[in-house]
């Protein structure tokens, strides 16, 4: 749930998403759900010549399971806070497992 909440804080930021089939898409992050499905607005497909079927697409829904990377704007991420949160989450998981 942590990364779901994390991505929610990044809505309306410009992100670049690389899919497992190597397509890279830049766009405004509009929404995310519990599966980390992502909704992008004002999309801009890098290397569009290779993917002509995306030439007239203005916004898209990407299934979370096919995402390889999400490239985030550095200024919008509080790395220290995220580190703390992940460690706390990991500690919770451990204590829950016991």
């Amino acid at each position: 749930m942590l990364f779901f909440s994390f991505f929610k804080t990044l809505t309306n930021q410009v992100v670049t998403i690389e899919l497992k089939n190597d397509i890279r898409i830049r766009g405004v992050l509009k929404s995310v759900d519990q599966y980390l499905n992502i909704k992008l607005d004002e999309v801009d497909v890098l290397d569009l010549d290779k993917y002509p079927h995306l030439s007239s697409v203005k916004n898209m829904f990407i299934r979370g399971s096919v995402v390889r990377y999400v490239v985030l704007p550095r200024s919008e991420v509080d790395v220290g806070l995220l580190e703390d949160a992940t460690r706390r989450e990991a500690a919770n998981q451990v204590s829950k497992a016991r």
Binding site: L19, V43, D49, P52, S55, S56, V57, K58, M60, F61
Partner: peptide, 23 residues
């Protein structure tokens, strides 16, 4: 079936007929 979906893009109806020149 959902598991087979990779992405779903809304087509801009203004641009839909602008097929890239090399196609």
């Amino acid at each position: 079936r959902g598991e087979n979906v990779l992405l779903l893009g809304e087509i801009d109806l203004d641009k839909e007929d602008d097929i890239p020149a090399h196609l």
